[in-house]
Amino acid sequence: MVTTLAETVPQASVTPDGAVPTRARRRPAAWWGLTPFVLYVLAFLVLPCLLALGTGLVDGDGRPTLSNLTALGDPVVLRTFASSFLVSGVTAVGGAVVGAVVCWGLTALRPDGLVRSLVDGAASVLAQFGGVMLAFAFTATIGIQGVVTQLLLTRAGVDIFAGGAWIYEVPGLLLPYLYFQVPLMVITFMPAVTGLKPQWQEAVATLGGTSRQHLLRVVVPVLAPAFTGSLLLLFANAFSSYATAAALISQGSQIVPLQIRAALVSETVLGRENVAGVLALGMVLVMVVLMVGYSLLQRRTDRWTR
């Protein structure tokens, strides 16, 4: 028996003459709920971004020019981007690995249990704990006069700053960044882990497979897109972080956000004006690539976790 198209579509979707609409009608009133959000994004995200980028394409007199773009090839700026990539890459990989292990361990707990609820709540709070507060916490703990630093020095004779005040340089950003990268990974990666279906493990066991085969041939391929997407998100989060680095590193501009700050404060960088907009353009390009990659991987993940 042949099934017609009209029989496969709900009756409410079929017009009185039996035709099937090619596109569902959407009520215009339903879109009005997005108006406040759209206005907010335009006012506080799109417009400032366009203004910041526009300053990199004009000279001191406001005339259009591309000469500022040559700042992206300056060795100082390239070293700054390299430092940002290094910090972002190390903390993203470290945070992703540790966070993935935490997520996998949480699957052994009851979803509505006390420990699981505490971990979920702590991850949500600590992922947003940054800026000056985080810099102060690390300075008071492992700074030159920090509590842990002095205890190690007086009780064990260990001077963690024997080689220099590394906490106030680029290496000192690794620990504070990991502090909020790990909980962020837990938040973003946990839905994919909980989306693993028990039926898949049962199917592997029915076919004679082992737990190791289930892990390598089912779990890893399914979670790989989600893990990579979360890794990109962590990289973008570290790459764009400013407040913690600004509070810890008071001298020099060793990462891109601090280089932009220096350009805005001094109004000139490397003898050229409006370089802050050029640096912002470089950051935006990096962020666009990361977010596009994250979006594509997230779509692939949704196929398995629905």
Rank of each mutant, 00 (worst) to 15 (best):
V286H: 02
Q298R: 10
A245H: 09
G163P: 02
L51F: 13
P171V: 05
F180R: 02
W31D: 01
R23H: 06
Q201H: 12
A203W: 10
P10I: 13
Q251G: 03
P28C: 01
P176R: 01
V38E: 00
L126D: 01
A236W: 01
V115L: 15
R217T: 07
I142S: 08
T8G: 05
V218R: 05
V58Y: 02
E267P: 00
A165W: 03
R27Y: 03
L78R: 15
P48R: 02
W304V: 15
G164E: 08
V119Q: 04
D59C: 09
M185V: 07
F81Q: 14
V125S: 10
R116H: 15
V148I: 12
F129I: 10
P36Q: 02
G277V: 12
A24M: 05
V14A: 13
L78V: 13
V147C: 00
G229S: 07
L151R: 12
V41M: 12
S67H: 10
M291H: 05
V58A: 14
M185K: 02
F136A: 12
G131E: 11
F136P: 00
T80I: 05
D159E: 06
G271K: 08
S241Y: 00
A280D: 04
G172R: 02
W200H: 14
W304L: 14
I249N: 01
I187N: 08
L175N: 06
Y40D: 03
L297T: 04
V119Y: 00
A165C: 00
I167R: 05
A205H: 11
W166V: 06
V20E: 01
W304R: 11
S211G: 08
R26Y: 06
T35G: 05
V98C: 11
R23E: 06
G195E: 14
V76I: 11
R155Q: 12
A224I: 00
T80W: 01
A123S: 15
W104E: 09
F235S: 03
V186F: 02
T65D: 01
F227C: 04
V77W: 00
P10W: 07
Y242E: 03
A122N: 04
Q298A: 15
M291R: 07
T107V: 12
P176Y: 07
A137Q: 04
A96L: 12
F235E: 03
L86G: 07
A165H: 07
V20N: 02
A30C: 03
L232S: 08
G277P: 12
W304M: 13
V58K: 08
V115S: 10
